[in-house]
Design a protein around this nucleic acid. Structure first.
Lengths: 210, 210
DNA sequence: GTCTATACATCGATAGAC
DNA sequence: GTCTATCGATGTATAGAC
């Protein structure tokens, strides 16, 4: 499942590099072979086609990404702790592996089915239910700890806030001189701003008869 | 600046369609020529190369997108009205032209400079200052109408929340059965959830001596 | 398993007739 | 302006020797 021969290992590493630099369509088997120190014929010997080679590279990237993303506990009961941890971990993980975002965006262009499949598999491995995050949010709402927000929309909002600067990095850094998305300063500031906005935004409102 | 001959018009229309369906690299000049009812040679007669043809298509798409986005007044003084209008208009515009997002994401992969250039040009045309939105937010903070948020981060947060479902549409719709990002129900719900979260999240906190 | 050599397809771009 | 025909480069994939 993981790594077979040394050659296979070298191919995967070279292919990952070239796919990231050129994109899926722009990548050339010749360049991958060169970078791996072998020839084109051997690429097709190990992986039947360019499509399968890309598929293998993609699955490894996404899989490692989810592993790191889920390394923080998702089964926290305290919703404040959860949100705080989730936001910090999400930003740290994306920031540490910005290249994964490009694979994800390419995958989305092709329907996103492979990614959803891998996500479900990772949740299963960890014994988590489907949609653990909306479930957590809903329970906090039911306990009256949060105002009645839509759990799915809140989850989308948090993820959208976390991802945006990385997705739009060239535009953001061009539009706001001084911003360096991957700098520790920006990252810490972003964590604080997102958490504060969300946390205050979901507090229960005092009821009229209080 | 806009449209010259009928043939040019047909080429642009066909090219837009093919670029959207296949991507920039995947698009074939032959298919564009076929769809425009002409031959390849004529494509190179009107536009020197595939690169220039793509450039022309991209600029028209982004330009029209910004025009619609800026159709709502950005110079509102009341921050609640502004936020409400901005969120509604942003979601409506993106929802009405989902294809523009794909052009934007491809542009980002190439540095995002063309897009920033067009944005600045559009702001100039309307006599708006650079970064009108952070400027608006900062003034509201200065007047004490909002708690001291970072204007740039707030802007990124709002845009991120608006864009996420459209960027990740295949994943979102696959992960949350029943969600149809482009449906009127989802759109209205999304507007409400974003505005409520943000509005409550940026209210001034009562000071200790109140 | 690893190589060289090449088959086979396709693409962007151009030459040149009309 | 519009066409046909084709060039030259490059791509994936494979055949066959070692």
């Amino acid at each position: 499942m993981t790594l077979n021969t040394v050659t296979e290992q070298k191919i995967i590493a070279a292919a990952t590099e070239v796919f990231l630099q050129r994109g899926k369509g722009g990548a050339r088997m010749q360049e991958i072979a060169d970078k791996a120190g072998i020839n084109k014929a051997l690429l097709h010997y190990y992986f039947r086609s360019k499509e399968r080679l890309y598929d293998e590279v993609f699955r490894r990237q996404i899989s490692a990404f989810f592993d790191e993303l889920f390394s923080a506990a998702l089964e926290m009961e305290n919703i404040a702790d959860f949100l705080h941890t989730f936001i910090h971990n999400y930003l740290d993980t994306v920031s540490a592996h910005p290249q994964v975002l490009r694979f994800v965006l390419w995958e989305i262009e092709e329907g996103g089915e492979k990614m959803v499949e891998i996500l479900h598999q990772k949740l299963l491995e960890r014994g988590l239910p489907a949609l653990p995050i909306p479930r957590l949010i809903q329970r906090a709402v039911n306990r009256g700890e949060l105002r009645p927000v839509d759990p799915v929309h809140l989850m989308m909002s948090v993820i959208g806030m976390c991802l945006y600067p990385f997705i739009a990095r060239p535009i953001v850094e061009n539009l706001f001189p001084g911003v360096v998305v991957n700098s520790p300063e920006f990252l810490e500031k972003r964590k604080t701003e997102i958490f504060n906005l969300v946390w205050q935004g979901i507090q229960p409102q005092p009821s009229p008869d209080d």
